[in-house]
């Protein structure tokens, strides 16, 4: 059941910026951004498949929590430099960190 994970806690990763249609759960504001893996999450059917199968069948992937600096996500962030945001990705949405984000 548990395939080997591609990423480890502490790894710097980027969120893939690819075309999406109809349904997915990878927020636009994370695309092309880089952050750090902070938690592993269990393998589960990816939402892109689950959303189209009444029985909830589909491809399974491990999930990860990634932490971003708010300053990186929003050019006009009005909070403080130490503020962060965490959200979750299935493995195929992540790649080893490229540069510091594309935007």
């Amino acid at each position: 059941m548990t395939a080997k994970r591609k990423f480890n806690i502490g790894d710097r990763v980027s969120v893939v910026d690819k075309t999406t249609l109809f349904h997915h759960r990878t927020q636009k504001f994370t695309r092309g951004q880089s952050g750090v893996v902070t938690e592993y999450r269990p393998e589960w059917v990816i939402p892109e498949d689950e959303a189209f199968d009444p029985a909830g069948n589909g491809r399974k992937e491990p999930f990860y929590i990634v932490r971003f600096k708010q300053d990186d996500l929003w050019p006009d962030y009005t909070g403080h430099h130490i503020d962060t945001l965490e959200t979750e990705f299935s493995e195929s949405w992540l790649e080893p960190a490229t540069s510091k984000g594309k935007r």
């Binding site: 109809f22 349904h23 939402p47 959303a51 189209f52 009444p54 029985a55 909830g56």
Partner: peptide
Amino acid sequence: RGAWNSEMRRRREND
């Protein structure tokens, strides 16, 4: 009971 699932529900809200 399997007629749909919660991710389908969310997708259908978009639809």
